[in-house]
Design a protein around this nucleic acid. Structure first.
Lengths: 153, 153
DNA sequence: ACTTTTTATATTGTGTACAATATAATGGCG
DNA sequence: CGCCATTATATTGTACACAATATAAAAAGT
């Protein structure tokens, strides 16, 4: 009844999606202890990366950058506000919008965070070429996924 | 104060990890409506893929395949048992182990599931070459992540 | 100006992930 | 045999993700 693996469309090894899922979980697990020293989770770290580039900005633009919606971001940002990393204030220009901006503490954390990428790569013993090639491939996939998402609804 | 993007180690676009994270979330989102017709979530679908290859097997071997621990699997498997997809029984040979096996309903679902990969690829309009290249890259990363995980603790 | 529609967040409910811890059964080892 | 470390799963507590829905402000239409 079982097909040989290279013909079975349901073979785990034939799916792009499974390695991607596994890689994402495993990477998160590698980040966790490093980011825990800063008191951050991985999604929180991503929010900080975006804000260190440009603060303040709206919840919506954060969501566009990170491909997350308010259902994920609102509680996450509230926890970060509670931790003193950022402020959330309604935009007086447009009361629907919430501006998210770094606090002094949030800005200062950037110093520490600069060591994070190096520490991760060191832990994983990844070479630069592999990393760069992979990054480009995955980025291509992300744009495909976004195109498909835009086309449908 | 801002560095140009190609020198800033904290630039979002320079991280492998972020596109991987985004791709994993986006893929999950694409799978969701397709799998919802079968009453499955994506991790539940992965469990079914493993069981269709080999049923029954222990919680531990499922976890090894999917890189998930009992904290994730136990409640997930209980929900799947509740949905009538599988059975969970203590192994009489070793009462610590729980054998997870497909029910008739679970086995029959395989027919429907065979259309899932094709429907996904069709939705995304991905070509075979890109998919294969990406899959190999990500698989390489997964093995690196596992090596690093084994080396540490 | 008033109504309708759209837009920006927030809330609710379900389902993962995972660290830390608990529990119970096996397998040594003296 | 009895004790102890190990192993296999379960539980607890925290933090995402996201669909569906709710809320309220702004924009558009009449």
């Amino acid at each position: 009844m079982d097909l040989p693996n290279d013909e079975d469309p349901l073979d785990l090894d034939r799916q792009v999606c499974f390695p991607l899922y596994a890689a994402s979980n495993l990477l998160n697990r590698h980040y966790r202890p490093i980011l825990a020293e800063l008191g951050l989770t991985y999604p929180q770290y991503l929010v900080m990366l975006v804000l260190w580039k440009n603060s303040p900005q709206t919840v919506g633009s954060l969501g566009d950058m990170l491909h997350l919606d308010s259902g994920t971001l609102t509680p996450l940002l509230k926890r970060m506000e509670g931790a003193g990393l950022l402020d959330r204030t309604r935009d007086p220009e447009d009361e629907r919008r919430v501006m998210v901006g770094l606090t002094d503490y949030g800005r200062e954390m950037r110093q520490q965070a600069e060591q994070v990428p190096a520490r991760l790569v060191q832990n994983l013993d990844l070479d630069e070429a592999t990393t760069a090639a992979l990054r480009d491939q995955v980025r291509t996939l992300v744009s495909v996924l976004n195109r498909a998402a835009d086309a449908k609804p």
